[in-house]
Amino acid sequence: MRTTLPLAVAFITGVVFVITFFLNEESAIVGGISKQLLDWLIIIGGFTLLLGVVSILRVSWQSVERRKEDWIYKLITILSVLVMAIPGLLPESWSSLFGRQEGSIYDWLFLNLQAPMMATMFATLAFYIASAAYRAFRARTAEATILLVTATLVMLWRVPMGEAFLNLFSEEIPGLINRYIMGGVNLAVQRGIIIGAALGAAAMSLRIILGIERTYMGKS
């Protein structure tokens, strides 16, 4: 029961979508079944996201309760969750500050706190990539030299000042970089990776449908 039921469910749902791929999706039966199962996927997916939220709150609360190191920050996390979630959950009909529409607390917090903070978090990566390039980008081997030279050429090509610099040597260079490095060698490698990864994903999908791949179920 604990193993057979999930395996049977994965098999049936998987086979349904493999079959519907070859049939007319607009027909009542095929379309109806696909539509229902896709709704199921969205609903279960929504719950899994909420599971993640509960998990974060649980772990944070445990730290607060046991007064672990930095518990005060965990308390701030919990309070922030509540400050963002509660006004968003309350109905708009109570106040224009509630709900998720423009002008609500939820919207204000998103635009003025969450979005800029998320952008700042990622903006710091610019500093790290510069530092990493300075420390680790060394022409130690032939392969590393190829990587370094290509990176430098592409960096020059992608910015106007760099392009002007390349044009000093020949106005053909930017076009050649685009055609032979990006649209030639890079395209070929990406294509090789895409084909390989897609074959891998298809094989893994088949293993899941046939019940050979069971790691998603955890330990038995």
């Binding site: 390039a133 420390r135 990176a151 960096m155 992608r158 106007p160 000042m161």
Partner: peptide
Amino acid sequence: GMDVQSMVHFVIIALVIIGNIGFF
């Protein structure tokens, strides 16, 4: 933004060149 991009790209290229000269 492309002006900034130009400047930062040149700084990074300069850093890579300096790093490699130092290395050799």
